[in-house]
Simulated scan of single mutants.
Amino acid sequence: MTSVHPDQCTPPLVAYCFMTGFIDAVGFTAIFVWCGFQTGNSVQLALALARLFQGPPGQRDFSFHIADKQALTSLITFILGASVGRIGDHMGSKTRLWLFLGTMIQALFTMAAALCVWKSGQGSFAELRGDPAWTTPLTFVAVGFMSASLGLQGIMGKRVNGQYATTIVLTTIWCELMADPKLFNLRAWVVSRDHKLIAIVSLFIGGFAGRALIEAIGAAGTLGVGCGLRTLIAIGWLFVPEKKPAVKPGVGNK
């Protein structure tokens, strides 16, 4: 139940960033939906609503396109997954117990997604945006579990309160990086700048690795590997140094 030191959480948080790219590579390759980046899904749903008023009466498109259904599924389950993260507020959001348990829940979500994709029997690659590879109820469930895992990861990363923000949304990190007053100070290690660069590179590598694995073993196998990686991250939280209690000035040891 000891709390980890936020400044010592770099390895697992970098691994979180890696998993964002890894999981999103699977979803985008199959259905062109980002399971972690909900800005795009929110705008897509707004466009779907606007489409209802497009064209003259009697000729309007009132159908709910499958891409919009998948975006809605991702958004709702992402929120539900993030809600699970509030359990940590009661256990202690920075305790080793919660960081281990929460990451294991992410791993279980990823395993459930892998099983759903495997049982669906559908492919891993979409040729066109209007023709996704996943269309069955089981793959919708898979998208839900993938998005929920990233939602939970996001709130856990946010509660640790390091330089990596949520470990998911990198638009903010890009903006903060470009606004960093020490951006071009190349002669020294700058935590506020360099940790953001590490996060960006880690997500990029995660996306690259995910896409390479999909080509080799398919989406289900890739998600299975992701489950194993998240289990290792969970174990890694147990070895993060704890945060020592602050010593009051003027108080010495007897």
Rank of each mutant, 00 (worst) to 15 (best):
A246I: 13
L203D: 02
D131S: 13
T20E: 04
T222N: 07
W174L: 14
T166F: 11
C175S: 10
A148Q: 04
R159E: 09
T73M: 13
F125P: 00
R60W: 02
G92F: 01
I31P: 01
P137Y: 11
F62R: 14
P11T: 07
K94P: 00
Y16T: 00
L99N: 07
G162E: 03
M104W: 02
F28S: 08
P137W: 10
A212N: 03
P181E: 13
M19V: 05
V247Y: 08
L80F: 11
G81Q: 05
F204S: 10
T167D: 04
G226M: 03
G218A: 12
V4H: 02
V201E: 06
W174G: 00
F204A: 13
F208V: 14
F109K: 06
P6N: 07
M178I: 12
D24E: 14
A15V: 01
K254H: 09
H195Y: 14
V240M: 04
G206A: 08
G130K: 05
V43M: 14
F125H: 09
N41A: 12
L108D: 03
V117N: 09
G154D: 09
G226N: 07
L186H: 05
G207T: 07
R187G: 13
L80V: 15
F140V: 05
D24N: 15
R86C: 10
F239S: 15
I105P: 01
G236R: 04
I23R: 02
A179M: 10
P132W: 00
L183Y: 01
F208T: 12
I217D: 07
F184G: 05
W98K: 04
D68M: 12
G92Q: 00
A133G: 08
Q122M: 15
P12N: 08
I217Y: 06
I205N: 04
W134P: 06
V4W: 02
K243T: 01
L97A: 12
C35E: 11
S120D: 12
F204N: 03
H195C: 11
S149C: 04
L238A: 11
G206N: 04
A165C: 11
L183W: 00
L232Y: 06
W118S: 14
C35K: 00
S124T: 07
T167C: 15
V201T: 15
I87E: 00
G252I: 13
D24V: 10
S42C: 12
F28Y: 15
I173G: 01
T172P: 00
F204Y: 08
R193A: 05
T29A: 14
A48W: 13
F140P: 08
T95G: 11
G252L: 14
C175L: 09
K243W: 05
I23A: 09
G27K: 01
P181K: 11
R86D: 00
